[in-house]
């Protein structure tokens, strides 16, 4: 049974546990403003895919339009946008919504739909734009490990490791599953 689950999970990574993982973000950000933690989302997120040869990625924008129609997810938000870029052949699906709950729901439904297309392994991470007090950072949810880590890029691919450590320890103290430091990989050219 366990073997079956592992195999199944491998081929179709985004199970129900992952959607619960993303909701962990809401648990923290829904706290009253000005509280001790004061972590927030800034209304934008992106799903990072690596584009192996698959029809879905040849015309990402029309695929997303289809997806939009098919899922007819929430009404008050901009339609899904996707863009392809860079040397890694990455594709970013962009979500914008000032309602955190809705944004997380959208990402979950899009993710599980993409997983149903057999592209579960192509999803690398979900990235949320966030702030802590006045500083901005990214929350990365690594889809391979279902764990979070903070990323605070400064210019020239330098990172604010100190802020990351601060956010990281805060997230961990609030029970968010956190990647160990050695897996806090960088991500360049995040489009949000």
């Amino acid at each position: 049974m366990r073997l079956f689950r592992t195999l199944f999970k491998k081929s179709n990574r985004l199970g129900s546990d992952e959607s619960d993982i993303l909701s962990a973000i809401l648990r923290i950000t829904n706290q009253p403003a000005g509280g001790e933690t004061d972590i927030n989302l800034s209304g934008a997120a992106t799903l990072l895919l690596n584009t192996n040869e698959h029809p879905f990625f040849t015309d990402i924008n029309s695929s997303l339009k289809e997806l939009d129609k098919e899922l007819f997810i929430s009404t008050i938000r901009t339609p899904l946008r996707g863009l392809k870029s860079d040397m890694y052949n990455s594709c970013w699906i962009i979500f914008e919504n000032s309602n955190n709950q809705k944004m997380v729901d959208d990402i979950n439904s899009v993710s599980s739909h993409i997983a149903n297309l057999g592209l579960g392994n192509n999803m690398t991470a979900a990235i949320f734009k966030g702030t802590i007090r006045d500083q901005s950072f990214y929350w990365i949810c690594n889809y391979r490990t279902s764990k979070f880590y903070p990323l605070a890029p400064l210019e020239n691919s330098i990172r604010d490791n100190e802020l990351e450590m601060k956010v990281g320890s805060l997230l961990a103290s609030m029970g968010i599953p956190l990647e160990p430091h050695e897996n806090w990989y960088s991500l360049s050219d995040i489009p949000i």
Binding site: T124, A125, M165, S186
Partner: peptide
Amino acid sequence: GQIAQIPEKDLRRVEHANAFFIIPALQ
């Protein structure tokens, strides 16, 4: 204990190098 462990590599690069997440003992 802290800073030195945070890698500079891009997540996508590691992902392509595969296996890493299963056997995290490369370092």
